[in-house]
């Protein structure tokens, strides 16, 4: 399902195949948050974690075994949710 275009949002950047841009922070549907470049992530305990990759994935489902980084566990949760419905 796609949301109607919010043309009122003044900071929105139009993206399409002709104007290929990239975002520094990407929220993946049912997945992690991608962070491009060097960044320091502070977790809920106040511990800081520096990125070490060109792109890093920060967990958004809260089930990762490698917090704050994504370890793919969200897919197992999604699978479980799908099979139980």
């Amino acid at each position: 399902m796609s949301l109607p275009d919010d043309t009122e949002t003044e900071t929105e950047i139009q993206t399409n195949a002709d104007i290929e841009t990239r975002a520094d922070i990407v929220l993946c549907p049912d997945g992690p948050m991608l962070v491009r470049g060097q960044a320091v992530i502070e977790d809920a305990d106040g511990t800081q974690h520096a990125t070490t990759r060109p792109v890093s994935a920060v967990c958004r489902c809260g089930r990762t075994s490698r917090a704050p980084w994504c370890d793919g566990t969200h897919k197992l949760i999604a699978d479980g949710a799908r099979s139980s419905t």
Binding site: A17, P32, R53, A57, R66, C70
Partner: peptide
């Protein structure tokens, strides 16, 4: 590869394959 491929997966699907097919 646990962490690296969790990133690569997202980039490969959305940007690499999505970007290729858009063009």
């Amino acid at each position: 590869h646990v962490e690296a491929d969790a990133v690569h997966e997202q980039v490969a699907l959305r940007d690499i394959c999505g970007g290729l097919v858009a063009r």
